[in-house]
Amino acid sequence: MAASGTESGQGLRMIAPPLLYAVLMLAIPLLTILTFSFIRDGYQIVIWELTLENYRAVWADQIFRALMLRSLGVAMLVTLATVVLAFPVAYFLSFVVAPRRKAMWIFLITIPFWTSYLIRVFLWKVILGYNGVINSGLKSLGLIEQPLSFLLYNTGSIVVTLAHAYAPFAILPIYVALERIDRSLLEAGRDLGESRAMTFWRVTLPLAMPGVLAAVLIVFIPTMGDYVTPTLIGGGKIPMVANLIQAQMLDIDNKPLGSAIAVTAMLIVTLLAALFLLLNRRFLRVRT
């Protein structure tokens, strides 16, 4: 009893510094905005009175609902595009690339991720823009007379940009899941009379699902909160939730309302993530 007590004690002492930091700088701030979201805004001063007014205002607000739906829609599209585009690459990495070259391929895939996010996003504007790479390329080939204006400042361009930004986040978890598959399972699938395609469908894909699920969550959550891309690529015409929070918090300085929006957005994301995991829980039970 004494010994297990000291082990717990040592463990607690060891975790204390990072835990204390997280409590002070994360838990307390999160609880604070949660509290803020329930109090009345009195412009510049805070009125200490509990109210659901902010939430009522948020839900009654047409703009919030539109932005929330757009954010969800964009995030889902981005997630779908990113994961679907990434899966074959992860599969290629795991099953086709020779083991000693894998490190090099992973290195190649992660390099763009380490370069300035802002500049990468901006460069998509250069690629898709009115006088951008695509338009000038098509023009010089004589395929079009006038630049295509529909390339930029729309949902599609936001999706492309974000799919690019989060590519490694999708590839790596799927790759790790694929690497963990015992290769003899696939041979067993073939041995039991399944075609290559059916073996993929019945063995590889279910076993890769934990990686796919991780990829979906890793892409979906930050995409929901993205601020830069809607501002730059959407040209400010297609704001998302993050832009709304920023506006309420800084520009309009209505902290209770901004907090209510942030809390609502977080709740929605958390509920969706939980629902998603619940629907796919059978895939998570495959592994121990």
């Binding site: 909160g225 920023q246 902290k255 957005a265 977080m266």
Partner: peptide, 23 residues
């Protein structure tokens, strides 16, 4: 404890920024 420490990984950065700012 580890969950709280790892939480920023699944929290949109704008939430982290806003909540810290308020405090």
């Amino acid at each position: 404890a580890l969950g709280l420490i790892m939480l920023p990984l699944v929290l949109p950065e704008i939430i982290v920024g806003v909540s810290l700012l308020v405090v």
